[in-house]
Design a protein around this nucleic acid. Structure first.
Lengths: 216, 216
DNA sequence: TCTCCCATGTAAGCACTGATTACATTGAAT
DNA sequence: ATTCAATGTAATCAGTGCTTACATGGGAGA
């Protein structure tokens, strides 16, 4: 990257990526709200004003972080989706839900950044809107194939079903990052409870009323 | 309270309530993130340090706002619930979902405050945790009665069903306040789409696969 | 009625934030 | 070698949450 061992150059070289990395580290350590561009700049060994050469404002920096995180989220979903094959559309929906939930549970702070509409400029990022839309289209296709194959009742309106599924999984993830499970009073751990809820929801879509596959 | 008509006394009288009112007005005008205790103090005609005599910190002030809002939310839910009677437990669940959603749509910023876990100290407020738990118990009771009366399949695990319902409605509301409907590309308005999603979800719980009652 | 106390207000200021402006430094194209 | 645009710094601004020391005055006890 730059001459090693000697002093750092006046021009940093790849400040952009280093700032993103520093911000991510900052998020992991002290939480999303504790992020400041000054601190990120300090960690990158640069003046407080330097970041503003590369990011118009704090929101732009956080949006860059969100874009990187979104890449990993969609990857998680795709991997889960490919692992199940495309034999049964309902199982495809289940795979998406699981991949999405699993990533959110494993990366709560990053999910918080992606889901936020105050920290980032979601609609100003083609990557964020594009990948969100892509998942939406995959789900819509699965629903259509499920109804064509008799696996999902054709009486269910695809758009309403789509919205229900999105709201359900998004709500589950947000309940988690919003701390709705901190005093979880049920016996089983929150993660398992969520997994069971996902299976119940998918089973309801598939017409079944609770099969035995709720655990893992 | 104090001599009317003349100048305000050195001691304000009811600063607490006036600060809460000022904060609410501030939220309505400029949004949740634009709230500052200095501005609230200025609107109450008081020094920037005065609020800290009554609220330990900004979080405490916002929590007080949240408690007031929560009172109105539960009221909305209860009214919707009483309006339907308790003949059909599934319709009771539908009423709760509608009351909850309607209030959130009508008071997005207040809902944002309640749902937040960074602006307020949710778990430190008996009122907030208590009223949330109360709604949870009402729903649990409705589910139990629904299963006892054959209205809801007994094969569905009550806890998983409960969590699914909560996640679903919470997700719907959060999608709204998080701005996931700003570029709503479907023909029908977002409010109607959400109402239809609610009906679809409740109908799935009730065993039916989409009746004709989706429109209001 | 007088006194004193303490709840409630103010003034001043600390440490921090996001952001801007003017200036300094540099690597690369001409 | 010169020039110049990109990229860094220094200094500074207005605003934030919050704290400390001091001012005020309403109400209880004498």
């Amino acid at each position: 990257m730059k001459s090693p061992g000697t002093r750092a150059a006046y021009h940093h070289g790849n400040l952009v990526e280093e700032l993103i990395a520093a911000t991510i580290a900052l998020i992991e350590e002290k939480g999303v709200d504790a992020v400041s561009v000054r601190e990120a700049a300090k960690r990158a060994g640069v003046s407080p004003a330097a970041p503003f050469r590369h990011f118009a404002n704090k929101t732009a920096l956080m949006t860059a972080v969100a874009e990187q995180a979104m890449g990993r989220l969609t990857l998680s979903v795709q991997q889960e989706l490919e692992a199940t094959g495309d034999a049964d559309p309902v199982e495809g929906l289940r795979a998406i839900a699981r991949g999405y939930l699993a990533w959110a549970l494993a990366n709560p702070t990053h999910f918080e950044v992606i889901a936020s509409r105050t920290l980032i400029d979601f609609h100003g990022s083609p990557k964020l809107t594009g990948e969100t839309e892509a998942i939406r289209l995959v789900m819509l296709d699965l629903i259509a194939r499920g109804q064509a194959g008799g696996r999902i009742s054709p009486a269910l309106d695809p758009d309403a079903l789509m919205l229900s599924a999105r709201a359900f999984i998004y709500g589950l993830c947000r309940m988690w990052i919003d701390g709705h499970f901190t005093e979880w009073h049920v016996e089983k751990p929150a993660g398992q409870a969520m997994a069971e809820a996902v299976d119940l929801f998918i089973d309801m879509i598939g017409g079944r009323q609770a099969t035995g596959r709720a655990g893992a």
